[in-house]
Computed example of a mutant assay.
Amino acid sequence: MVSLEQVQQIYRQPLVSLVFDAQTIHRQHHQTDAVQLCTLSNIKSGRCPEDCKYCPQSARYDTEIENYPLLPLETVIEQAKTAKENGSTRFCMGAAWRQVPDGQEFDRVLEMVSAVADLGMEACVTLGMLRPDQAKRLAEAGLTAYNHNLDTSANFYPEIITTRTYSDRLKTIEAVAAEGIQVCCGGIVGLGESEQDRIELLHTLANLNPQPESVPINALSPVEGTPLSDAAIVEPIVLVRTIATARILMPKAIVRLSAGRHRLSVTDQALCFMAGANSIFSSEKLLTTVNPSIDDDASMFAQLGIAAWETVPQR
């Protein structure tokens, strides 16, 4: 167990010392100067009954996103093949559901998972709340990881979401881990949370058993029509501190520099990589928000001397 006081001490130390410690730990556990490319597909968009204040896919908010039902299997397979050709080794599929539905739709998701795994890629899904029996079926289909973010601290969580509880999220994470599926679990900075909230989120993540294999660190991308549309853009240094602390607390995890990257300069992103981030999303969009282009990322990699993983290392 890591104490809250220990997390506070790590997070609040001088930035140069924090990044040095994080980079030192990173080099002990991971390939240096290399990141994993992931592609995220929005396989079912909009009309979600949840009230997450940051999310344009909520049916409660008037946003301009496209609403569509679960994509055909063939469409998703073609997306995954294209992602692999573009260098991604992990293909993530997100559906705007509160709870994973039983029936034909879930059966189709299972087929998608199997097809992605058959391509030699890591298969990840984020589908909402999940029962143990559903987790078992996903594991049998070949699922690598299940994404279910905690978003923020338990204390601040009710300010952002009221339609499900923090314990609901933890139950889904427990169901996933019990089936041997890797847990992908992180959070969002820039929701209006305090520094202490970020510290408490990292404390919770570090004390999950097992620790998450994958930790996405997202910066809010405010979307017009959502309650957080006027939220202040978070300073890049907040991302760097959050990533560095996550790297120190969860040495073996893949720390993913996720949403909000389009607002970061190459220098900002370089600091995040120095702090221990070793994965980015290579997609036209992250579900519904803007993401840097593949060409922009290739240019950044060339400037920084960073390579994309060509294969998935054994972890």
Rank of each mutant, 00 (worst) to 15 (best):
V2L: 10
Q13G: 07
Q13P: 08
Q13L: 09
Q13F: 06
P14D: 12
S17H: 12
A22C: 12
Q23N: 15
Q23A: 12
R27I: 01
Q28V: 00
H29W: 13
H29L: 01
A34T: 15
C38M: 12
T39H: 09
N42L: 15
I43H: 05
G46D: 11
C48K: 00
R60S: 12
Y61F: 15
I65H: 13
E66T: 12
L70E: 03
T75S: 14
I77A: 01
I77N: 00
E78Q: 14
Q79A: 03
E85Y: 03
S88T: 05
A96Y: 10
A96Q: 08
A96M: 11
Q99E: 11
Q99F: 11
V100F: 10
P101D: 04
Q104R: 12
Q104C: 06
Q104I: 11
E105V: 00
E105N: 10
D107Q: 15
V109K: 09
E111H: 13
M112L: 06
V116K: 00
L119D: 06
C124R: 01
L130Y: 05
A135G: 14
A135R: 01
L138C: 01
A141C: 11
A145V: 06
L150D: 10
T152V: 09
F156K: 01
Y157M: 04
E159K: 15
T162C: 05
S167A: 14
D168F: 05
R169N: 04
T172Q: 05
I173E: 05
I173G: 04
A178H: 12
I181S: 14
C184P: 07
G186S: 05
E193F: 10
S194I: 11
I199M: 07
L202N: 08
H203K: 04
T204S: 10
A206H: 05
N207H: 06
L208G: 01
N209R: 13
S214L: 03
I217F: 08
A219W: 00
L220A: 11
L220G: 08
L220I: 11
S229Q: 15
V234E: 12
P236G: 01
L239I: 14
T242H: 08
I243H: 01
L249C: 13
K252V: 03
G260Y: 05
T267I: 05
T267F: 04
C272E: 14
C272Q: 14
F273R: 07
M274C: 07
M274Y: 08
G276S: 02
S279W: 08
S279K: 02
F281C: 05
S282W: 00
L287N: 04
P292C: 09
I294H: 15
D295T: 13
Q303S: 13
Q303E: 14
G305E: 07
A308D: 00
W309Q: 13
T311K: 13
T311C: 08
